[in-house]
């Protein structure tokens, strides 16, 4: 079996109706796996930026880059597998917080430099930002207390140093 790799790409697209459907339709049609997808507009309101984490073997990843680049609305595709990048994800985690566990949970939150942004009699809602590993790690540590709900934004990424995608 060829090795399945994770692969981060940034796609700059024309901010037009249907462009997300074009990208997701392409991935679905050609059997490409999307692990996460984050989209929003950029400093130029006519341009949207997508950060896509995809998985596949080398030839699949090569096809993902080429087929995506070929879409007419795609202005530019930057493959982040070969260059140093900063990557971040934001997660909101609602966890059960019985009085006996509150101190422990608050310590975990501190260690991860996360924040408790909402509190109720029986729960905390925690905001955490970081790389995928960090978000996974805090989620795992909170699991024993009873995770009620998790939402993650999907990864966004940017090249280190002065390089820009645009």
């Amino acid at each position: 079996m060829p090795k399945l790799m994770q692969h981060t790409i940034t796609v700059l697209v024309d901010n037009k109706p249907g462009v997300l459907a074009r990208i997701s339709g392409l991935f679905a049609r050609r059997g490409f796996n999307i692990e996460s997808l984050a989209v929003s507009i950029t400093d130029d309101p006519t341009v949207s930026r997508m950060t896509i984490v995809a998985s596949g073997d080398d030839s699949t990843l090569d096809q993902i880059n080429k087929q995506t680049s070929k879409l007419i609305d795609v202005i530019k595709l930057v493959d982040y597998s070969q260059i140093p990048i900063i990557e971040r994800e934001l997660a909101l985690i609602k966890v059960k917080a019985e009085p006996v566990h509150r101190a422990e949970i608050m310590q975990i939150v501190d260690i991860f430099r996360a924040k408790i942004i909402d509190i109720s009699v029986t729960s905390f809602t925690i905001e955490v930002t970081g790389g995928l590993d960090k978000v996974d790690a805090i989620e795992n540590l909170l699991r024993p207390y009873g995770i009620m709900e998790v939402v993650r934004t999907g990864k966004i990424a940017m090249a280190r140093g002065a390089h820009t995608a645009i």
Partner: peptide
Amino acid sequence: GITMPVTKHNFL
């Protein structure tokens, strides 16, 4: 939507 996968590009 229907013609997106069977065209090079499409417009509304």
